[in-house]
């Protein structure tokens, strides 16, 4: 393997890892705060991508310059989160707090099923293509090879998201309250914390991140039914490799999955999907709680 190949794999892998990280960050945040493993997370990504497809179409309609489509995508993600987060968290998931965690897993599975068809009803089954924004940043040369500038911008976006969530949790008062709720919701409630609001906030941010990743990857893919299923399995692999509830874990997990996939695509294309699940299964067998979590000993 030549250096250029390795570089290509690395760049491709990191680009792939960057949007995957944004999705996984939302997933891991929701799990960390609400103790819910959200099987519908991939659908939220898909809804974000669809919404972005619709919103960016408005940019030429209003005669705005193409750069505004970046803003349109952000607004799309925000709109998805504003609509879906309260409906799902307040309207549904709230009913199952304190019940068996596997039961809540099943509820989110039901949400996944419902959202699958809702997106089809709203946007139809025809694919949407959002190529326009991808030309915004031109091409960038790295070691004699050209990369699409937009793709590299995703890396920056992922870094911003990761940093924002980390700073938000560790450096703000609200973040400290969230950490307190993670630690012990009951005691926090006794101290006067409005735990319900914290849950809604965390769920909102989680949904927003999923939709954001969907919105900004829409230009890279054809937006069509089925993208949610792929994304949920990939982001699960990421958080499970990294450790549920851990932000650095999500980053490492995303890099492992991204680079493993890119390497597979170049070297053994027949192993593309398989390799990701294999890595996940191996990690689970040896470090059941993921790479970044202390293994909690079971009682027996």
């Amino acid at each position: 393997m030549e250096f250029a190949d390795i570089l290509t794999i690395l760049v491709d892998g990191v680009v792939y890892a960057s949007w995957l990280f944004i999705v996984a960050l939302g997933l891991t945040l929701i799990f960390g705060v609400l103790q819910i493993l959200n099987l519908a997370h991939g659908s939220l990504y898909a809804v974000g991508a669809y919404a972005a497809a619709s919103f960016t179409m408005l940019v030429p309609y209003f005669g705005l310059p193409p750069a505004f489509s970046l803003l349109a995508m952000l607004i799309a993600a925000l709109a998805v989160a504003l609509v879906l987060a309260p409906i799902l968290e307040r309207g549904l998931l709230r009913l199952f707090y304190g019940r068996d965690e596997v039961l809540i897993l099943l509820v989110t599975y039901a949400v996944f099923l419902v959202l699958e068809d809702v997106t089809k009803l709203v946007w139809g089954v025809q694919p949407y293509y959002v190529f326009e924004p991808r030309n915004l940043f031109g091409n960038v040369e790295i070691g004699q090879l050209f990369y699409v500038g937009y793709d590299l911008m995703l890396i920056v976006l992922a870094a911003i998201c990761g940093l924002a969530v980390w700073l938000g949790l560790n450096k703000t008062t609200t973040g400290k309250v969230v950490l307190a709720v993670i630690h012990n919701p009951d005691v926090s409630a006794c101290m006067g914390v409005r735990v319900n609001w914290i849950y809604l906030l965390a769920f909102f941010v989680g949904v927003f991140l999923a939709a954001l990743a969907g919105a900004y990857t829409a230009p890279l893919i054809s937006v069509q039914p089925g993208i949610s299923v792929n994304v949920i399995i990939l982001s699960f692999a990421v958080v499970i490799i990294g450790g549920l509830g851990s932000i650095p874990g999500a980053a490492i997990g995303a890099l492992v999955v991204g680079i493993a996939r890119a390497a597979a695509v170049y070297e053994f294309p027949e192993a593309e999907i398989f390799i990701i699940y294999l890595v996940m299964a191996i990690v689970l067998v040896f470090r059941p709680e993921g790479l970044f979590q202390r293994t909690q000993a079971r009682k027996i």
């Binding site: 596997v102 699960f236 192993a271 593309e272 398989f274 699940y277 299964a281 689970l284």
Partner: peptide
């Protein structure tokens, strides 16, 4: 719990892949 559930998913998806 969910770790058992997700590990079984991982294994079935390996077979799928």
């Amino acid at each position: 719990g969910i770790f058992f559930a997700m590990l079984t998913v991982a294994l079935s998806m390996v077979l799928y892949g």
